[in-house]
Write a protein that binds this DNA or RNA. Structure first.
Lengths: 185, 185, 185, 185
DNA sequence: CATGAATGAGCATTCATTCAT
DNA sequence: TATGAATGAATGCTCATTCAT
């Protein structure tokens, strides 16, 4: 019985998942056929179904990995968190495109929506807690401002998904200036 | 002779388009079958094709209407624009969900992407011009800050699409406070 | 009650039938939609169904008219018949194309096949009778040669349907020479 | 691993193509639905599309095979060609019916028309060349008489398509006698 | 008499999934 | 383990026909 190593299994799974992610980022979940994934991954149709129970399972795996990208804003000193937040504003275009597809899927699939919302809520709560320890400009509600910071991140992801040439550097600098103006009144 | 009135024709088109928009907002463009639209609109399959050449044409019509929702930030005094911008932060959940589906579609369809980008770029340019006439906090680049305002709008749309209960009021007030902090240094 | 004249009715019917024949000759019966006929005839969809019970009825009407084009070889002196036969070898391309479509339809529709076969058999029998009164070259069976003359006619119709530029004149002259060689041994 | 043999693949293709040809011969190309072909071939709907890109491709394959039935009159001594020509006058009824359907399709599809015309022109040219080396009865133009021989063939195909009981033997004998009368003046 | 909006069954085709090898 | 041929339900769309006006 050709029992192969766990590394081999994991590598195969990665190979399929990466190919699928590339397809999904480009064409969306529903315009990507399993044949597309099969072709892109270089394995056979049958094999895909030994690693994933079906298309939905594959989507779930990709969404789960995407979901784990949060936690950026949940640990460290406020300054560290700000630095990491600003860093992450500049992501790759493919990641951005995949995110947008997942956002759309979150609209119709409650389980994905749950994950997507936690990707907003967990960092937001953590950020709001941090903001409450700081002096804030007049009228700034910590919780709402935390939500605004998430929105700024999401908006940039969206704009990056549509325009690879977008100059994130100036954008990041100005976000920093906004943070400065609001938290150092 | 059943050469019916133009109003009737327009109303029929609306009826189909509204039903389609509701389907698309809920399930996305590709998970919505024409049968779904047919069922939701209450007309027959054949009739849909008298008003639209096909599914793509229907999507195009919906995207075009969505695209015309911009121009909010392009006319009036700065104060009027700010008021209108803040007003529009609080949209309906269905509109938000449809927007997210269109964003996702914009990733794969260049024509839709073009419209989506213009929905960002036209207001952004107009806003940046207005910002240049105002005193700004240190480090705030007019163009980047205009983009941030769009991002804030987009982020709220996204969060509204996932969570109907989201309290937009506090959010809007805090956005106003951010504007205050940045433009009245 | 707007009771119109019989001439009007007949003219309307002709108008529709001619438009239909043109469509059928170009695209065949099954690639021509009723919408095509409606468009080509310039009347409304509903009106077509006041003159014909349906598409099949319209086809039947056209096939019946086509069927009445036989009888060429059934009356007159042998010489007159030969002259008329040779004359009819050179038909218009549109008529030829319509004939080919009818032939194909005759393969699947027994009623049309019956008419098509009578278009072969009636002239054939009449011709064979005439041939039996003439001296024939060695080995020429009157009935088979009559069939051959029909075949020659059909073959030219077919070749005309595919090639409008076909030179029928030389062809007709050589058919006459064949007749000469066979009937004047 | 079900990388099945090439023979298996070819056999499957044949199975589908034969079933399709039978359907097309009986009902014509446009009255035959893919479901009909699927039913007749005994395979699933999906499988048909692994062997043919669509209905048009299947028609093209059948027409191409049909087209290769020419060349009968292009090689060998004149006597051999005559023998083969007379042999082929007696074809099967199904082949005849398929030919008629292809002829009709040739009227509307320029690519099929091209093949159909070459099925006339290639043998005709070869035959005319052969005829030019022979003594001919008065008034017989080699090229026109070659065309007449094609017409005789086509006419018999057509009459066979409508009438399976047609006695081809007498017909063939009389065609031979005509050839005799014309080429041995 | 005449219109053309409306119908819905039927069509060609795709695609997630299975299973014999 | 790995393959890819095979399945069949579902999709977007067309079209002959009807009927309210």
């Amino acid at each position: 019985m050709p029992k192969v190593s766990d590394e081999h299994l994991a590598a195969r799974r990665r190979q399929i998942l990466d190919a699928a992610a590339a397809c999904f980022a480009r064409d969306g979940f529903h315009r990507t056929s399993m044949q597309d994934v099969v072709r892109a991954s270089g394995v056979s149709a049958g094999l895909v179904y030994r690693y994933f129970t079906g298309k939905d399972d594959m989507i779930a795996a990709i969404v789960t990995e995407w979901h784990d990208q949060r936690r950026i804003l949940e640990t460290g000193t406020p300054d560290e968190r700000v630095a990491r937040y600003l860093d992450h504003l500049a992501g790759t275009a493919e990641t951005a495109r995949l995110s947008v597809q997942i956002w759309a899927e979150a609209v119709r699939d409650p389980r994905i929506r749950e994950l997507a919302r936690r990707n907003v809520d967990d960092p937001r709560t953590a950020t709001a807690d941090a903001l409450r320890t700081m002096p804030l400009a007049a009228g700034i509600e910590p919780d709402a401002f935390a939500r605004i910071l998430i929105a700024i991140y999401q908006g940039l992801v969206l704009q990056t998904a549509w325009d690879e040439t977008l100059d994130t550097e100036t954008y990041v600098r100005t976000v920093a200036a906004v943070l400065e103006a609001v938290t150092r009144p």
